[in-house]
Design a protein around this nucleic acid. Structure first.
Lengths: 168, 168
DNA sequence: TTAAACTTTCAAAAATAAATGAAAATTATT
DNA sequence: AATAATTTTCATTTATTTTTGAAAGTTTAA
């Protein structure tokens, strides 16, 4: 396979995975494009490579910056802005996990905590089932949260190395 | 908070979380409803509780069955079908992880494997960056996959218990 | 300060995803 | 076998998400 074809396949695959996980397809594609680009790209270049509009490119790049996955660079003598993607895969995974935890998991945990406070008749099966399900999910969510926190603090080596020693 | 209000809040929160993670909002809501229902419900009941159409209820319930989260029951003397949700939170988490891995992660890993085969000029920065990024992501994806496989085989206690001993 | 270069915004349009509901298909009952 | 109950399908409608592109805003340089 040629580089050009591989690049397209990579961008396509990354975009598909993103959209299946609730991330805008274009955002994932722009990220993929920047990931395989050795140099920082301009908005114009992103627009041309992916055939997207200026507005879309601008908003998507801004989102990627918000996610901490891309940084804006200025080249001396150049007027326009350049965009460069963090290339460290482990750092990327951490940023994404961190951001989604904060944006999505944490709010749910807050609501679950409130729901464990719901009072009712202990004899009522509807109440008992509600309470059990909410309590169990709450416990799971808190454990996931705790595990993520630990992973986020850990170094790359934790994931790529020693962790597997505890698995048979 | 009253049970009725709590139930609504739970269904709403579960639906929102689902939609943020690429799962149809209604599907997550139907799942939430069944999770807090002590008895198996009929299609009619699901339709009424969530104000959705028969077609929607039917398709959603079928999807939940495909995901292995809900089972169809038949009550003696009753003509219609009843739907009951698996209540074990750990089992639910495992089913979801397993299914998404199979449906979404595995295909991407296949593509990444192909992309590591792309040949090119080792002097070309574009090629070098492509190769490095693809290789790194491939390595991460395979590690995630391996970790998930191990978790899927493990027992609940693994997650809720001993794992935390390795964390400080 | 003016004008050109560039970036951002956002209302409207397009694309995509989800829901409806009535008809068709299936299944059970008499 | 006819009919009644129930489930499934799917063309159409509705809702949601994403993209566009032109206008407004901003920055830089002469």
């Amino acid at each position: 396979m040629e580089l050009a074809e591989g690049k397209l396949k990579f961008i396509e695959a990354w975009g598909k995975l993103g959209s299946e996980w609730g991330i805008n397809r274009t955002m994932a594609q722009v990220h993929a494009l920047l990931l395989v680009s050795p140099e920082a790209l301009t908005t114009e270049e992103v627009m041309a490579e992916l055939s997207i509009s200026r507005g879309n490119a601008n908003m998507t790049l801004r989102d990627l910056i918000d996610w901490g996955l891309v940084e804006k660079l200025h080249k001396t003598g150049e007027r326009k802005e350049f965009f460069y993607a963090e290339k460290d895969t482990w750092a990327i995974a951490r940023r994404v996990a961190e951001e989604r935890k904060k944006r999505e998991l944490d709010p749910v945990i807050k609501i679950l905590a409130q729901l464990t406070e719901v009072k009712g008749d202990e004899k009522d099966p509807a109440y008992k089932t509600f309470k059990t399900s909410v309590n169990d999910i709450n416990k799971l969510a808190k454990n996931v949260s705790k595990t993520l926190d630990t992973m986020l603090k850990a170094e790359e080596s934790w994931f790529f190395g020693s962790i597997f020693k505890i698995f048979k």
